[in-house]
């Protein structure tokens, strides 16, 4: 099977969704003939016409608000927020309507829409182009929040999101757009939306990560293994609904847990994960749950973003502080020296 980029997989998912259901519409800023600034909608207007994939005025609240009305009229809109930080003007629509409409109509009106948000840093973006905004959405009852870390997940989670009866905020890790992988187009080849998966099994420490942090966690696991420490990497995939079962089962096996996120740490998704793990696994834990996260600063400029992003070294550092009897020190370089 040939490998494709995550960007291509997302593009294929949209194409197949448009083919599968005439009511699916794709719209946003520059998503038409240009194919989006990241080319995720490349060729869709050519194939499906302006009626199905179209450019809108530059107005994020309007884009999401119009999508609400289209849902009421029986359509399934997939809208693009051009960048994470440019989704903020739409936040009132998302928090007050997209998230609440099913509830405030007692289930009579559902909003099967997808809001795609390219998010996160690591691409050398100038200010306002690298925010991790997932916690705002995950904190809002009524929204599903999903983020793929693999190419195959990008394809299938997006297909699942389009088919979902509820609104899904689909967070696309920008810096993984050009990562490559295989995609099986047989349905059921990956876990459905709502489940976490164990990306790598390991007996010593559970590392919980999502989106752009997953490849970093996997790299850390490879390093740690060289030092004789086995990390189990859980990829959350879906922040809402949250898959407690998979996380809890893993932590009960390993007895230790590190949570990794690229977003600033304070009041973030990682804090929620840590709290849930303590509540459910306290008697299995041999050490406090530690977090590896971005600093509580506005996302930094390209020149210093490396200092901000969770790294293999920081993950290994956290692992070494998990109160092992033999105190492994994984911090001395990426090569991973274990005493």
């Amino acid at each position: 099977m040939a490998t494709v980029t995550m960007a291509r997989a997302l593009n294929s998912a949209l194409r197949e969704a448009l083919r599968a259901d005439d009511d699916v519409l794709v719209f946003g800023e520059d998503v038409g003939p240009l194919g989006g600034v990241f080319r995720i909608t490349d060729g869709l207007t050519r194939e499906f016409g302006q009626e199905r994939c179209f450019d809108t005025p530059l107005a994020e609240a309007g884009i999401v608000g119009v999508a609400v009305g289209l849902c009421m009229g029986g359509f399934r809109p997939v809208v693009e927020m051009q960048f994470d930080a440019f989704g903020y003007p739409a936040f009132e629509q998302i928090a007050s309507h997209v998230a609440k409409t099913r509830n405030r109509t007692r289930g009579r009106l559902s909003l099967p829409m997808v809001i795609r948000v390219p998010f996160g840093g690591g691409i050398g973006g100038v200010e306002h182009h690298s925010d991790s905004s997932e916690a705002y959405y995950a904190h809002t009852p009524g929204l599903k929040v999903v983020t793929p870390a693999t190419v195959e997940d990008a394809y299938w989670l997006l297909r699942d999101a389009v088919d979902d009866p509820d609104p899904v905020v689909f967070m696309e890790p920008k810096r993984l757009y050009w990562s490559r992988g295989e995609v099986s187009t047989a349905r059921g080849s990956v876990e459905p939306l709502g489940r976490a998966v164990v990306r790598r099994a390991g007996r010593d420490v559970t590392v919980v990560a999502y989106g752009p942090a997953v490849p970093v966690a996997l790299e850390a696991a490879r390093e740690a293994a060289r030092g004789g420490v086995e990390l189990e990497v859980v990829d959350l995939r879906s922040l809402v609904p949250f898959d407690d079962a998979t996380v809890v089962a893993s932590v009960r096996r390993t007895g230790r847990c590190v949570v990794v996120q690229e977003a600033q740490g304070f009041a973030g998704v990682g804090a929620e994960v840590a709290a849930r793990v303590q509540e459910r696994c306290f008697h299995s834990l041999a050490a406090p749950v530690l977090r590896v996260a971005g600093f509580d600063v506005p996302y930094p400029p390209p020149a210093v973003e490396r200092a901000h992003l969770p790294s293999v070294r920081r993950i290994l550092g956290a692992v070494s502080r998990l109160q092992f009897d033999d105190e492994p020190d994984l911090t001395h370089g990426v090569a991973g020296v274990v005493s």
Partner: peptide, 20 residues
């Protein structure tokens, strides 16, 4: 209740009616 937030919904629904 959130002022004017219903206006884009109305436009979206009108667009849906136009398309149907």
């Amino acid at each position: 209740t959130p002022l004017a937030t219903q206006a884009p919904h109305a436009v979206g629904l009108a667009e849906a009616l136009r398309r149907r």
